[in-house]
């Protein structure tokens, strides 16, 4: 059995602000008798892109769902922007969620609404003081940022997979979140579109000054976006370090992700 390797200091921390935006301590969650996350501790620092790698079923998506309290952990604490997520009442939780953007694996665009209405939906509820004209301008600008200016009045069903992901990203960033959580942003996309999404993630981070957690098992996306990386295995942190440390790791599991497959 392989021993766990842990590298304590985050790589690139010299260029990052030391301020933590998310701090997770001893997080445990299971479904029925099956434990999913066991004693997990993770930090996200300001303006960094943290990539969380891991095989399917390692608990990556469960982790970010716990951060926005879509799932309630069995034990452990999650502090987001100084607030203990599990102790917030509904109103405070809603306020905190306004500062967090969540890009779902499936995109999760509202089927019955046009792209414009999809973007208008969170905007109307979060930025209540905007006039209709300001809202329209904000929507047009955001769609332009993700390269979807001409889809304003289209329905989600009329868009391709990549366009839907971008529209979903636009819906997430239109409310200017401080933290972005990406749940497998490139899954199901071709390599060219995956690259486009990866560059969009970097653009969003630069333009909106966000701190991001990117859940993925797409190594190209991880290479393009990571400031720091964490590998999860069986609900525990298996390795934490920089991209370089991951690439050079002799560990078999790590190499199975990074080394090109023999044909």
């Amino acid at each position: 059995m392989k021993s766990k390797i842990k590298i304590a200091s985050p790589a690139g921390s010299a260029t990052l602000s030391p301020e933590q935006v998310i701090e997770i301590h001893n997080l445990k969650i299971g479904f029925g008798d099956v434990p999913v996350l066991r004693d997990l501790s993770v930090q996200l620092f300001e303006k960094e892109n943290l990539v969380i790698l891991g095989k399917s079923g390692s608990g990556k998506s469960v982790l970010i769902k716990c951060i926005v309290r879509l799932l309630n952990p069995d034990s452990g604490t999650i502090n987001v922007l100084g607030e203990n997520v599990n102790k917030l009442n509904d109103r405070d939780l809603a306020k905190l969620r306004m500062k967090i953007g969540f890009l779902f694996q499936s995109g999760a665009l509202y089927d019955s609404m046009t792209i414009k209405e999809n973007l208008e939906f969170p905007l109307k509820r979060i930025k209540k003081n905007l006039s209709q004209k300001e809202m329209d301008e904000k929507i047009a600008e955001t769609l332009e940022n993700v390269g979807l200016s001409d889809t304003l009045n289209k329905m989600p069903s009329e868009l391709s997979g990549g366009m839907r992901k971008r529209a979903s990203l636009a819906r997430t960033i239109v409310v200017d979140p401080m933290i972005m959580l990406y749940d497998e942003p490139t899954t199901g996309l071709d390599p060219v579109t995956s690259d486009e999404i990866s560059s969009l993630i970097n653009d969003v981070q630069k333009k909106y000054d966000t701190s991001s957690i990117i859940i993925t098992h797409d190594i190209e996306c991880a290479r393009a976006t990571a400031d720091r990386m964490i590998m999860l295995k069986d609900g525990e942190v298996y390795l934490e370090g920089s991209l370089d440390e991951f690439e050079k790791s002799p560990d078999e599991l790590i190499q199975s992700f990074f080394k090109p497959k023999k044909k």
Partner: peptide, 15 residues
């Protein structure tokens, strides 16, 4: 909507 995570998306966007 539940299967395609649209309800979760609504909840996350403070609605």
């Amino acid at each position: 909507m539940k299967v395609t995570e649209q309800i979760d998306a609504m909840e996350v966007s403070s609605t």
